[in-house]
Amino acid sequence: MEVRTIKVFTTVDNINLHTQVVDMSMTYGQQFGPTYLDGADVTKIKPHNSHEGKTFYVLPNDDTLRVEAFEYYHTTDPSFLGRYMSALNHTKKWKYPQVNGLTSIKWADNNCYLATALLTLQQIELKFNPPALQDAYYRARAGEAANFCALILAYCNKTVGELGDVRETMSYLFQHANLDSCKRVLNVVCKTCGQQQTTLKGVEAVMYMGTLSYEQFKKGVQIPCTCGKQATKYLVQQESPFVMMSAPPAQYELKHGTFTCASEYTGNYQCGHYKHITSKETLYCIDGALLTKSSEYKGPITDVFYKENSYTTTIK
């Protein structure tokens, strides 16, 4: 009895394709271990004539594949690729409408935090270190965002349907971005203890939790000093293409032309909904596939993004 075979390709990165001759009487799992086709788990399936010449994702289970996976995804987590594939199996079914010149995501599976993050990423200057993220990001900007969303979920250790947080998501993504040249110098002034300067680099240099107003941050924000008295913390120097200011959701007025974009969060910790506000020729609110415009805006804002380049204080 002759062994019926077909020729397929296996890959971990969709760049390096490895030619395989597979036995049609055995499952993919018996031949390769966990195997995925377009995100779908085909591990328990036997090869079919229609699979001839198709590319299958496999887990990096030998040295060659491990090197290829690390170079593309910059992670050695053995569960990463499987999590990416199972997320992709959902995100490829989502709709990605162009809204006001940006790629958004039609609401499904509690994905409003991903839509808000995706919209924000198209408006701030950011370059990702893992080629996987950078490639998928370019495709997302062009309207094909399924891979990018699935990668975000995998890097953030999230599953489809789980509630997510924009600030946490951005923080994970910033860790995989090139923020080497970003720098922030802060000064804390206390009447009792004097003053202390701190220099922050990388992710810490672009994120701040405690106030939404970048102007206020430049002037000074009140913080408790270690001595128990009130101290003032203010920005001395900022070198970065953008800054992200966050605070627990509270009524906040966004003035046209003073910011790049913002995240609105309605609801409580267990259950809520994100919308995205962007400042173009007027203010726009993007909620999944829905767009509304207004000249002014007041609502429960939790993150505001500002364009920056270089700032030095005039406070002496």
Results as ranks from 00 to 15, higher is better:
Gly288Leu: 01
Val243Ser: 07
Lys293Pro: 11
Glu68Asp: 09
Asn110Glu: 04
Gln122Asp: 01
Asn14Val: 05
Ala247Ser: 11
Ile15Cys: 12
Ala145Arg: 00
Met85Glu: 05
Gln237Ser: 14
Lys158Phe: 05
Cys225Gly: 03
Gly53Leu: 12
Ala177Met: 06
His74Lys: 06
Gln197Lys: 09
Leu163Val: 15
Pro60Gly: 08
Thr258Gln: 14
Leu283Gly: 06
Ser104Leu: 04
Thr211Trp: 02
Ile223Trp: 10
Ala146Tyr: 03
Leu254Gln: 06
Gly101Ala: 02
His18Tyr: 06
Glu264Asp: 07
Asp38Cys: 11
Leu59Asn: 10
Leu114Asn: 00
Asn111Cys: 00
Trp107His: 15
Cys149Lys: 03
Lys219Ile: 11
Asn268Gly: 10
Pro131His: 02
Glu168Trp: 01
Tyr155Thr: 00
Ala289Trp: 02
Gln222Pro: 14
Leu151Thr: 01
Gly82Leu: 13
Thr5Val: 10
Ser263Val: 15
Met207Ser: 09
Leu153Tyr: 07
Thr312Leu: 12
Asp62Arg: 06
Thr11Asn: 04
Ala140Ile: 09
Met26His: 15
Asp77Arg: 02
Tyr155Ala: 00
Asp77Leu: 01
Trp107Arg: 11
Tyr73Val: 02
Ala154Met: 02
Ile105Trp: 01
Asp180Glu: 12
Ser279Val: 01
Val3His: 13
Ser171Cys: 14
Phe56Thr: 00
Asn187Lys: 10
Tyr214Thr: 05
Val8Ser: 01
Ser25Val: 10
Ile105Asn: 02
Leu59Thr: 13
Arg139Cys: 12
Gln175Phe: 01
Tyr265Glu: 05
Tyr274Ser: 03
Leu290Arg: 09
Leu163Glu: 13
Ile15Leu: 14
Gln238Ala: 05
Leu291Met: 10
Thr169Arg: 00
Gln98Ser: 14
Phe148Glu: 01
Leu118Tyr: 02
Cys156Asn: 03
Tyr84Thr: 01
Tyr36Gly: 01
Ala146Asp: 08
Glu162Thr: 07
Tyr265Cys: 10
Gln196Glu: 14
Ala150Tyr: 00
Asn178Cys: 15
Phe128His: 02
Thr232Gln: 10
Leu65Met: 11
Glu162His: 07
Asn129Asp: 09
Thr35Tyr: 01
Gly161Tyr: 03
Asn111Arg: 00
Thr313Val: 12
Cys261Asp: 04
Met244Gly: 06
Gly29Glu: 11
Gln237Val: 09
Ala142Cys: 15
Gln230Phe: 11
Tyr84Ala: 00
Asp63Glu: 11
Tyr172Ala: 15
Thr19Asn: 12
Thr91Asp: 00
Ala205Pro: 04
Ser86Thr: 06
Pro47Ser: 01
Cys271Asn: 15
Gln197Ser: 12
Asn49Tyr: 10
Tyr311Glu: 05
His176Glu: 06
Lys316Pro: 08
Lys233Leu: 11
Val243His: 04
Pro131Ser: 02
His276Tyr: 01
Thr292Asp: 10
Ala205Ile: 01
Lys275Leu: 01
Asp180Ile: 05
Asn49Cys: 11
Met85Thr: 03
Thr198Leu: 12
Asn61Arg: 10
Thr103Pro: 01
Tyr172Asp: 14
Ile15Ala: 13
Ala150Arg: 01
Gly257Glu: 14
Cys227Asp: 03
Ala132Asn: 00
Cys227Leu: 03
Leu88Arg: 03
Gln251Trp: 12
Ala132Trp: 02
Val189Asn: 10
Leu118Thr: 02
Lys201Asn: 11
Glu168Lys: 06
Tyr96Gln: 01
Tyr72Pro: 05
Arg66Ala: 11
Gly272Thr: 04
His176Cys: 06
Thr169Ala: 11
Leu65Gly: 08
Val160Asp: 00
Gly164His: 07
Thr35Leu: 06
Glu2Gln: 09
Leu88Asn: 00
Gln237Arg: 12
Tyr84Ser: 03
Asp135Trp: 09
Phe259Asn: 05
Ser246Cys: 06
Thr292Asn: 09
Tyr138Val: 14
Pro224Asp: 12
Leu114Ala: 04
Ser294Ala: 15
His256Thr: 14
Phe305Val: 11
Lys46Ser: 14
Tyr172Lys: 15
Lys95Gln: 08
Asp77Ser: 07
Met85Ala: 03
Asn89Thr: 08
Leu121Met: 12
Tyr57Val: 12
Ser181Pro: 06
Lys307Arg: 10
Gln216Thr: 10
Ser25Trp: 11
Gly288Pro: 04
Leu88Met: 06
Leu186Trp: 09
Thr260Glu: 12
Thr260Gly: 07
Cys271His: 14
Lys255Asn: 07
Asp41Ile: 08
Gly257His: 06
Gly194Thr: 04
Thr169Ser: 00
Val3Lys: 13
Glu215Tyr: 04
Glu296His: 13
Gln197Pro: 07
Pro60Phe: 07
Glu239Lys: 13
Ile124Gln: 00
Tyr57Ala: 04
Lys201Gln: 15
Asn61Tyr: 11
Leu65Asp: 07
Lys92Asp: 01
Cys156Gln: 06
Tyr284Lys: 07
His51Cys: 05
Lys93Tyr: 15
Ala108Arg: 11
Phe148Trp: 03
Val243Met: 07
Leu173Phe: 02
Leu186Gln: 08
Val22Asn: 00
His51Gly: 01
Val185Ser: 05
Ser246Trp: 02
Gln197Val: 14
Cys182Pro: 03
Cys190Val: 01
Ala115Val: 02
Leu163Asn: 15
Cys112Gly: 15
Lys93Val: 05
Cys190Phe: 03
Gln31Arg: 11
Gly272Arg: 09
Asp287Tyr: 04
Thr199Gln: 13
Thr312Gln: 13
Gln20Asp: 08
Leu88Tyr: 13
Ser263Phe: 05
Arg141Cys: 13
